[in-house]
Design a protein around this nucleic acid. Structure first.
Lengths: 135, 135
DNA sequence: TCCACATATAAACCATTTTTTATATATTAA
DNA sequence: TTAATATATAAAAAATGGTTTATATGTGGA
């Protein structure tokens, strides 16, 4: 019962739903999410860790970056993530997407990028992680 | 997005999951639930209203009693309720069931019962509301 | 080595939720 | 009408959750 409570609690916060919706497109590192949500980094880390504790996210450490992505190991959680992505309108996260895109661009042009093969890990939704996604 | 948060918030509390699990068997009035959970009545009313606000319950007023039951109008919520009932173990609510049963019996023998046709409204789960259930 | 960066964690603070206690409302029975 | 019962609501207290600010940790580059 406790696990169930943790699962639902993780999804009962707007910021966390926005994070899920962002990750629908594929993995992101913390600084991407910080830019997309336009929030301070500890706040984002707090919510990421709530989602991770509940089993919704996995992380991949690489150098100084931590990349988070939706965790599709468990069918129930996957179904919930899918429901969330379906139900959070494109409109609701348009600005997040805009900020993310412009942050990505800035990173690209800065030349501080380390080249990584894009990893097409996806949990749900129609799109696929397509962009070349270094940090 | 707000509605989604409300939905998940409603399910992210142990007491409310216990209530859902109790109502799996069919409608109950507040005093039944109070007895089953062994909690004070305003507390139970508070949680019932959270579940109702989120669209998980409907109520039926009859005389001095309010009978609550799972609301199966919406497919998404129904799926969530089903998931909850599936995942909350029988063990986890055994004592609730025991207290409920003995409360029912007491009511029955007290003779203060008003006769109502049992209503087989069910949302999910294998059992059906079978008992003759007045308040 | 030293510095800058990405992220995590801790502590203090603020906000929301839950619980308790008290009381109000409505209904039925006497 | 009065008393008893079932439930709801309100206000205060307690608990939990989220945000902010400051700092720690770990990594890679100069």
């Amino acid at each position: 019962m406790n696990e169930l409570v943790t699962i639902f609690k993780a999804l009962s916060d707007e910021t966390r739903l926005r994070i899920v919706k962002l990750l629908e497109q594929g993995e992101l590192c913390v600084c991407d999410i910080v830019a997309a949500l336009d929030m301070v980094q500890p706040k984002v880390s707090f919510h990421l860790s709530a989602l991770k504790e509940a089993g919704f996210l996995k992380d991949r450490k690489q150098g100084r970056w931590t990349h988070y992505s939706l965790n599709d190991n468990d069918l129930f959680r996957r179904m919930l993530l899918l429901s969330v992505c379906e139900r959070v309108s494109r409109e609701a996260v348009r600005e997040d997407r805009t900020r993310l895109a412009s942050f990505m661009e800035k990173k690209g042009s800065k030349g501080t990028v380390i080249s990584i093969k894009a990893q097409g890990k996806r949990c749900c939704g129609p799109g696929a992680l397509s962009r070349h996604r270094p940090a």
